[in-house]
Design a protein around this nucleic acid. Structure first.
Lengths: 234, 234
DNA sequence: TAGATTGTTAATCGATTAACAATC
DNA sequence: TAGATTGTTAATCGATTAACAATC
């Protein structure tokens, strides 16, 4: 049985911090790959793309893993963050929906090296079943329960068309999956206790478009002011 | 020249709201597809997966597009949100890096219907150049500047390996692209005024893993307490 | 008019940041 | 010891939420 030390009970890590821990982990791995053994909060913050005050505040929720006047031991901090996230062991994952995106996900080498193991690819379409993708044979969706039980899968990835997403999520939840990463462009409803994270390509682009449009309007507005006041570039 | 009405100047839409507008837009489209002409904030909130107070607060930043006692006209609200985001016209987009993910992105039909048009696929690898993907011939990366100028591209998508991401971003910025969607598992640094959004598959999975681990620990802790106190399921 | 639902207020909550005492 | 850098404090900022007056 897993036990937690008495100090763990006090730790409540803010959600915003949790979302940045994997970013720090990746930055530390990059530093280690470059042969860097020690880094300051400033170094790591730069590598992770945040400011150093935020980084130190985030790390303070995990414990005191640095040395004042010196900085952080890269490997030690990396291990502590990996342990906190829970990726010191591999998590078995199933991917449902082996279309273009499912293919790309199945072939993504980053899963394996970052704490995940794709144990099965599933598709409801019989013409896809039996194909070999990334060295794994696609199995029929109806095998989900058997696979989840066999490998004790807790995390499911949905890469189906939007219309199928809710049905797939319902089935996953019924079988005991409690974490879902949803790539389908649809909102899926799940019961309390199940986590869903959503990745949506066109939503990300639309957020960029909004800011892009404001930049264009801002430039126009500035130009208009320049014309009105007779001003111009220096 | 684009002009803005005097009321627009007062509008500063919070970033959290901006990120949800595309979700509302998608939910409204789904309602319209189901033949629904009018909806309450409660209806739309459910479809979008948020609570109705948040939805009304978000919409209030755009203006007063509802009718008290009645609700919102689906098509009208949809148009107003699309206009606010800036997706009533198409945005030309280039995708750089036509590996597995680039293929999937090129084939993603959701771009076209949601305000984006993929005008070019680029890759630095000569063995990929010339291939036809989603009906578009892949061109060499060095053609980026020509394509950006020809189509007035403002948004670039990076789907290259991590090592190439910063170089591609630098080139995009040098040529005048001011919004970047980065799928490469690397932090890219850009100057002030350039927006970068990052989509990272393994980071999303790691966030799920963290919560999954806590669920497991929580269950263990509860079980331990049950054992200690002699308690059990009712 | 009565019922329904919006748009807004105000309170609460959570996240960010600068500054600095602690300490290596 | 002197210099460097962490871990923490406290102030600020932004986001969420419930409640309800406005009004269709």
């Amino acid at each position: 049985m897993t036990t937690r030390s008495s100090t763990d009970a006090a730790r409540v890590i803010p959600e915003a911090t949790v979302a940045r821990l994997p970013v720090y982990l990746r930055a530390l791995t990059a530093l280690a790959d470059n042969g860097i053994r020690t880094c300051s909060s400033e170094d790591l913050a730069t590598a992770a793309g945040v400011n150093s005050a935020k980084l130190r505040k985030d790390l303070s929720y995990l414990g005191s893993y640095g040395t004042r006047g010196v900085g952080y031991d890269v490997d030690y901090l990396r291990y502590q963050i990996a342990r906190e996230i829970g990726v010191t062991q591999d998590w078995p994952v199933v991917i449902v929906g082996i279309g273009n995106l499912g293919h790309a996900l199945a072939n993504y080498s980053g899963f394996r090296s970052r704490g995940f193991r794709v144990v099965a690819l599933l598709d409801a379409d019989e013409s896809v079943v039996g194909q070999s993708v990334a060295g794994v044979v696609v199995r029929p969706f109806r095998d989900l329960e058997e696979i989840v039980r066999e490998h004790d899968v807790a995390i499911g990835v949905i890469a189906t068309p939007a219309v199928a997403a809710q049905d797939v999520a319902d089935r996953m939840v019924a079988i005991g999956i409690t974490s879902i990463l949803n790539f389908a462009p649809a909102v899926v409803a799940v019961p309390e206790g199940v986590d869903v994270r959503k990745v949506d390509l066109s939503i990300e682009l639309q957020i960029l478009a909004y800011h892009e449009q404001r930049k264009a309007n801002g430039a126009d507005a500035a130009a208009a002011v320049a014309v009105e006041t007779g001003g111009g570039a220096a």
